[in-house]
Simulated assay, not measured.
Amino acid sequence: MTFRWLETEGGPFVVVPHTWLPHWSGRAGAYDRACAVMDFVGVLALPGGAETLVLGDEPLPTAYLPEHQVLVRWC
């Protein structure tokens, strides 16, 4: 099994459903709230009643396994 690892340059990963992507700006206010998540996982409210998953704590390499519908992180 081959993983496609994704990495950030220090910020958290934000998982937004495709249909709600227009509600995520990634600008200062939203990005700052995402960076404030100190646990491994958090949820942020978005405009229009949407929510986004934040993979917080450390900026760990992350992969998505669609056959299992799971995110894995390298620790």
Rank of each mutant, 00 (worst) to 15 (best):
Arg73Tyr: 00
Thr19Lys: 15
Pro66Ala: 11
Leu44Phe: 03
Leu53Lys: 14
Phe13Pro: 08
Ser25Ile: 03
Thr62Trp: 03
Gln69His: 14
Phe13Lys: 03
Tyr64Ile: 12
Arg27Asp: 05
Met38Trp: 00
Ala45Asp: 13
Val70Asn: 02
Val37Met: 12
Met38Ser: 13
Gly26Ser: 04
Pro12Tyr: 09
Phe40Arg: 15
Asp32Asn: 14
Pro61Thr: 01
Trp20Asn: 15
Thr62Phe: 01
Glu67Met: 12
Gly29Phe: 10
Leu44Gln: 04
Glu67Phe: 04
Val16His: 01
Ala34Cys: 05
Leu53Pro: 06
Asp39Met: 08
Ala34Tyr: 01
Gly10Asn: 00
Cys75Ile: 12
Pro17Gly: 06
Gly29Asp: 10
Ala30Met: 13
Met38Arg: 13
Ala63Ser: 08
Ser25Val: 03
Trp74Ser: 11
Trp5Ile: 09
Gly42Asp: 04
His18Glu: 15
Ala45Glu: 12
Leu55Phe: 04
Val14Leu: 01
Cys35Val: 14
Phe3Gln: 13
Pro66Thr: 04
Arg73Leu: 12
Arg4Val: 11
Gly11Trp: 00
Leu46Ala: 07
Ser25Trp: 03
Thr8Met: 15
Ala36Ser: 05
Ala34Lys: 09
Asp39Phe: 00
Val54Gln: 08
Val72Lys: 03
Gly11Asp: 08
Gly42Val: 10
Val14Glu: 01
Gly29Tyr: 06
Leu53Ile: 14
Ala36Arg: 09
Pro17Val: 05
Pro61Asn: 07
Arg33Leu: 12
Thr8Glu: 02
His23Leu: 11
Arg27Phe: 12
Glu51Arg: 15
Pro17Tyr: 11
Pro47Ala: 06
Val41Met: 05
Leu65Gly: 03
Leu60Lys: 02
Phe3Gly: 07
